[in-house]
């Protein structure tokens, strides 16, 4: 009962949030300076009637209110319009890139969360030790390195000089046809971008984990767990972690919420064919519908991730479940 109304309340809140985001999404892109038709006109020097046709094609000739209604209705139906540039449905553009982004950013996120958490736990368990100081310094360092720069360094060292890893792309050119070889090829190509992302990301998780663990480790129930004769691993990973996870849950959920936004710069440096690069291109080309579409999906993901975080919170922390 309590749980049900808790879920319902959260869900309703999520829906309202999404509607507000959609509206803002629309307004922001109309307020931005620039005009996609003019960008095309600039390239090929269109005649006025061709310009008019482009306006019509993109629906830009209608009043703003009509555009808004059309946008809302279409978005809710999962149709985000046509890209000004590729002229393909945006949903299609997104779907093509989605698996690549999920693969790269998903792997990197999971890896950096796991690595970050382990480092955070170890650092907290040996607070003040050499392990702690080293791990946290590296975490800070990685967190503050600009990813574009890091990516280029990795490219130049491992791609150009050592030639261990490829410089671009998701697969070789041309891609191998044997499925096993293709899997290995993709893994080979994602090594450097994953590595770059993990370096950038793990520090944040490590710091949050460490802080949460240090908090929890001073709790009485941890001493009791030790008194009970539990081994240190059980104390750390069962008793302390479960409690320290509470603040981590939100962080992790948000990380997965932003999964779709990909890693804008990382995907760009490594020419990874994902949504981050799509956003980057769309920004450069002022492809409003594409940006609108992807921002909408990201917003939904983030809101959904928040909702899931709330629910997981309820699962992890029985006190919340009760309320």
């Amino acid at each position: 009962m309590g749980l049900l109304s808790y879920v319902a309340k959260r869900a309703a809140f999520a829906v309202v949030t999404i509607l507000i985001i959609m509206t803002m999404n629309f307004v922001i892109f109309r307020m931005m300076p620039g005009n996609p038709v003019a960008m095309i006109a600039d390239m090929v020097r269109l005649r006025p009637e061709q310009v008019a046709r482009l306006y019509e094609l993109f629906g830009l000739d209608k009043p703003l209110w009509d555009q808004y209604v059309q946008y809302m209705v279409q978005s809710l139906r999962g149709f985000y319009g046509y890209s000004y540039y590729s002229q393909r449905p945006i949903a299609e553009d997104i779907m093509v890139r989605l698996p690549n982004t999920l693969l790269l950013v998903g792997t990197a996120t999971v890896l950096s969360i796991v690595i970050g958490m382990v480092i955070g736990i170890l650092a907290a368990a040996r607070r003040g030790s050499l392990v702690d100081v080293t791990a946290i310094s590296f975490g800070f360092l990685g967190n503050s390195v600009p990813v574009f720069w890091l990516g280029l360094i990795l490219l130049l060292v491992f791609g150009v000089d050592l030639k261990w890893f490829p410089i671009r792309g998701t697969t070789s050119v041309p891609a191998p046809t044997d499925p096993l070889a293709l899997v290995l090829d993709i893994m080979w190509h994602m090594t450097l971008p994953t590595f770059a992302l993990v370096i950038i990301l793990f520090g944040g998780y490590a710091l949050i984990m460490r802080a949460a663990m240090i908090d929890v480790l001073t709790e009485d129930y941890i001493q009791l767990a030790r008194a009970k004769g539990l081994d240190e691993r059980t104390v750390l990973y069962k008793h302390a972690l479960r409690n320290a996870m509470l603040p981590m849950v939100t962080v992790i959920a948000l990380a997965f919420g932003f999964l779709l936004s990909g890693a804008l710069l990382t995907e760009t440096v490594f020419s990874w064919y994902g949504l981050g690069r799509y956003i980057w291109d769309a920004i450069l080309k002022q492809d409003y519908p594409a940006l609108q579409g992807i921002f909408f999906i990201i917003s939904v993901m983030v809101v959904a991730a928040n909702l899931i975080a709330d629910l997981v919170y309820g699962f992890l922390d029985p006190r919340i479940r009760q309320e």
Binding site: L155, R168, P174
Partner: peptide, 20 residues
């Protein structure tokens, strides 16, 4: 002919250097 798509001109230059 392989037209290889790079997402950044920096990476493209790296490709020129590496022979890709």
């Amino acid at each position: 002919i392989r037209f290889k798509i790079y997402a950044s001109s920096e990476a493209e230059v790296a490709g020129l250097l590496s022979g890709d």
